[in-house]
Amino acid sequence: MGQKYDLQHERVKHLDLTQYSQVESGTTVGETVNKMRAEHRNCALVTQKGKLVGIFTDRDVLHKVVSSPDAWNKPVDEVMTPNPFTVTEDDKAETALLEMNKRHFRNVPVLDSNGHVVGNLTHYALIKFYADQFPEALYNLPPNPNQISDSRVGG
């Protein structure tokens, strides 16, 4: 027993991180968006020679791109959030998640000890961690609520 205990003993690298697109600084907004589309990602991390310099998400597309057609050909650097808050893969999972909540971030890039991006921490990580602890209650459910019969085949 004790989920708090368990989470306290996990590092960020033990969590299920979310996938992201990676683009080099200077890439145009249009190219970035197309890459995110092709890779089915909601978040792009912008790097310069391997080092993270910014983050660009679907929320930025909503606020800064879709209604301003001239943004399309500009470098992504102009619309991204520069120098985002990051955590490292060896940070304690619980601390990282608390920090993320406190600062109201939805995407927190994860770096390795050399400062290279290795993942993207989102709320999914906590939900997935929790679900993994209770597969019977959380994974083993019918496709729709109540789509379950009282007369059982087995037990």
Partner: peptide, 27 residues
């Protein structure tokens, strides 16, 4: 979408059976 693969049948596995998770991933 996944909904296109969900039938209207009531599922008759025991609540909590591992079969549900397999169904969900297939869908």
């Amino acid at each position: 979408t996944r909904k296109d693969f969900v039938s209207d049948q009531m599922v008759r596995w025991c609540p909590g059976c591992g079969d549900y998770a397999i169904l969900a991933q297939m869908q």
